[in-house]
Design a protein around this nucleic acid. Structure first.
Lengths: 191, 191
DNA sequence: GTCTATAGCATGATAGAC
DNA sequence: GTCTATCATGCTATAGAC
């Protein structure tokens, strides 16, 4: 064959990465296969050597995105004790708000995930539960608090992106940071 | 003319209402003009008697949706003192999570609004500020807390819609309700 | 104001050459 | 594995009849 043994896998990985970034910026449905392939210097016809359909790509893409985010947010057993607050600071940053292409897939593609297949949503749910489980230990054992912190982060970023003025965007992010800080300090189960 | 004097306005209103519901369910970009008009028993050609382009409809639709939500959430000066908590209960309901067509436009179309024109986003921002302003007075004067509550609501609904199992969805909504309750009770400015 | 017809283009997906 | 060519369909938007 004219291509190296690992070429297909490499191309598939690049395609997932690149398509993820593009979809998070312009929407998945709204972006054509030709555009996704052109970003890799390829043509549309080559797409079907890697995925059987556009929906197939969406499933793989969402799984990859949510997996990576979940691993990053969950951290490891030897992560520092301020791991969660570090995640919060970086999640609620102006950079994140202004760069959907490298940001959280739930903020950029949440609605499209919501109307996707049960399989895709089940995978997303599993990853979210990993974060919830990891954070619960760091939030005083309150399982609900982890969900609430996640909701706070996601909602703040949605708000930050829909408003027009950078000033309001900054106020939203700052307010959300304060709210999370209060949530994580006043842990009733811990007293 | 063969049509009543108010016919155009009525059709335009129905079109905004119906298109809003459809777009919130299936996405705006993903839905064709023919489908939007068919929902009113009309054909695609008639669309351009009401809007000059699909983007024009989007702008009008988002403004209508966010205006209605903002008025509802902001309430009036003579709204009961538990107005905010009533809003929270209804926003964080299973019904809302399972019925995007009648729900908050920010949850369903947030990403599409984020990449729309500055004009659209400025209108959204203005409506959000009305809610923020109205809620600030009911939340101990803390301007940031209103943003945080809004973020909590929106994020929880995004999460509730992306997960697969009704059980997890319920846990998310319940956790968010508790979090908002804590936020609104422990108001440092109030003590 | 709504219809049909259509232009002009983009799309998802397939077939066959290399 | 990628290319070009193509099919069938969908789309936004326009033109002209009623």
């Amino acid at each position: 064959m004219r291509y190296s043994a690992t070429h297909k896998e490499e191309t598939r990985t690049k395609l997932l990465e690149s398509s993820g970034n593009i979809a998070k910026t312009g929407g998945f449905d709204s972006t054509g296969i030709d555009a996704l392939m052109a970003a890799l210097g390829l043509t549309g016809g080559a797409f079907y050597s890697h995925f059987s359909s556009k929906q197939d790509l969406f499933a793989a893409l969402v799984e990859r995105e949510i997996d990576r985010s979940a691993k990053m947010l969950a951290g490891t057993p030897d992560s520092p004790s301020d791991h969660v607050s570090k995640c919060v600071r970086s999640y609620l940053s102006t950079f994140h708000a202004e760069h959907p292409e490298s940001g959280c897939v739930l903020v950029a593609l949440g609605a499209e995930i919501a109307r996707s297949s049960p399989e895709v949503r089940a995978g997303v749910e599993q990853s979210l539960k990993q974060v919830q489980s990891a954070w619960t230990g760091r939030l005083g054992g309150d399982k609900g608090k982890a969900w609430a912190v996640m909701a706070q982060l996601i909602g703040a970023l949605v708000l930050a992106r829909v408003v027009e003025s950078p000033r309001t965007r900054q106020q939203i992010l700052t307010s959300s940071r304060s709210a999370v800080q209060e949530m994580t300090l006043n842990s009733p189960p811990l007293g």
